[in-house]
Design a protein around this nucleic acid. Sequence first.
DNA 1: CCGCGCTGTGGAACCGGTTCCATAGCATTT
DNA 2: AAATGCTATGGAACCGGTTCCACAGCGCGG
Lengths: 308, 308
Amino acid sequence: MPAVTIRDVARRAGVGIGTVSRVLNSSPSVSRETRQRVLAAIEELDFTPHPIARRLSLGKTLSIAVIVPFFTRPVFVERLRGIEHALAQSEYDLVLYNVETTERRDICFREIPRRERADGLLIISLSPQDEDVKRFLQADVPTVVIDGRHPEIHRLVIDDVEGGRLATEHLIELGHRKIAFISDFLENRFGFVSSLDRFEGYYQALELADIPFHPEYLKQGKHSQMAAHRLALELLSLPDPPTAIFAASDTQAIGVLGAAREMGLEVPEDLSVVGYDDIEAAEYLHLTTMNQPSFALGTKSVQLLMAV
Amino acid sequence: MPAVTIRDVARRAGVGIGTVSRVLNSSPSVSRETRQRVLAAIEELDFTPHPIARRLSLGKTLSIAVIVPFFTRPVFVERLRGIEHALAQSEYDLVLYNVETTERRDICFREIPRRERADGLLIISLSPQDEDVKRFLQADVPTVVIDGRHPEIHRLVIDDVEGGRLATEHLIELGHRKIAFISDFLENRFGFVSSLDRFEGYYQALELADIPFHPEYLKQGKHSQMAAHRLALELLSLPDPPTAIFAASDTQAIGVLGAAREMGLEVPEDLSVVGYDDIEAAEYLHLTTMNQPSFALGTKSVQLLMAV
DNA sequence: CCGCGCTGTGGAACCGGTTCCATAGCATTT
DNA sequence: AAATGCTATGGAACCGGTTCCACAGCGCGG
């Protein structure tokens, strides 16, 4: 079955190739009658335009590259889902790149932002460095960063400071004054900033309520249930243990719940736990959690990218 | 900054375009000296070959389309992660399509399997119909289905019957004889078969142990924690309630745990619960679960696709 | 009747690679 | 010395679209 091209259609319809192309792109300057003939020929030959050829002559790739770190994490998946949903309604393909090491991230940041590679670039939760951004701008590929920071890049920011503050204030309103914060490493090789911001909010809330910040109530570790579990055990074994724990993500909050159970503590009677990210499991775990509109953030990022 | 092409490189190096192309594709028939000159010119001009042009003249798209349903579900994400990992090391792009409605599925099955669209197609957990498969074969696009069924398609199957049997036998060995099965709809519009197979395994295990199958111990509902929660409440309110529940996925198993807690039952003392899929949360929930090598399945599917 | 403008159309040139054919240069064989 | 073969190379043709320029045909105003 040899490929049917625009020239075959033109011959069949008895018109020129330009006319076929005009019909395909619904140009107004084709007479009604000619258009009918061409459409009939397309139908008869079961013709589909060749996307690659189209891209080459348009000088566009018609694809959007999406760089997402660790898409095992529910928030990232949910944002990606939003992005996919928005792109499905456009003529753009979604080309996916997952990043789980800094090496891979650097390769992605170096090689993907090229005009001939993608018409647009969406980056989730990674903060490009100055030299990366310089390359992005030089390559002239529209770029939007979700939940990352760099002054010279279009970005959708999440007010994690506010979120951290609200979560902490919630605990304070419940009467707690000994509130601990468990998070993944605030300084990390991937430049994730959400936990840092949530910590900032936590700190502000304490300050506003005149509660002194206890450094031993801040615990950092790998982003996993297991690590958070261990950190929570440490906290709960302190001479003066906290009565509430704010975890920087639900994944970590689940680890805290495990630790509480291991220590024989009831949640929320003996220990209040607040998580962050709104994973589905939260409601079954007596877990208060901060809701993030991740899906909407994904669709919004696509709109922003298209407007750039 | 005008795009640098192979012709610019040829002029700079004082060679023909064919030679540049040969250097780019590391053809052996270029003299050492000429190769050096060309490489120097490439370096000086910061030349990168234009992928789209390459694809057009190669007649390949250099991309693999991946169709995945509901990639909120952890198993699907994990398989996708395996696929991404394998493709990252190849020259192929991963173009992602998420399916959450049957309409979207049908559109994907109709439009994506075209030679000019993708060099290969990976389908996760969806079973194409005969007419779809006919189109796949006619379009001559290598296709691999993970965890779906159709005799004429290359596929990676998971022995969910065996898995269901093992899970149920585990419960039987613990001494249970009143074992219920909670799952999403066994007959569904998406053609998901894993739960059906697990049910088949459950049934076989009962039969082998001479335990009669009680239809009221089979509960079907939407795939969500909430739905499973309700179904579990129904089960536990039966005049003769089960002492063990096998849930077709961990997501549903979490719902069962919630229901047990609501009824004041301790797990596993008062009720045994077995899940399926190996989500990370399992270990914190006193949940026994059947492990699935999802990531490996993803990488394997890519290998299989490449070998087709 | 001429010139002008407008509409609809044909097709060459172009996008930037790869591939194949022709050929030059040189060594080897007869 | 002629024939043969091998290696390295140049560049036209090609992949299948889009776009732009040229032009035909027609109506209209002067």
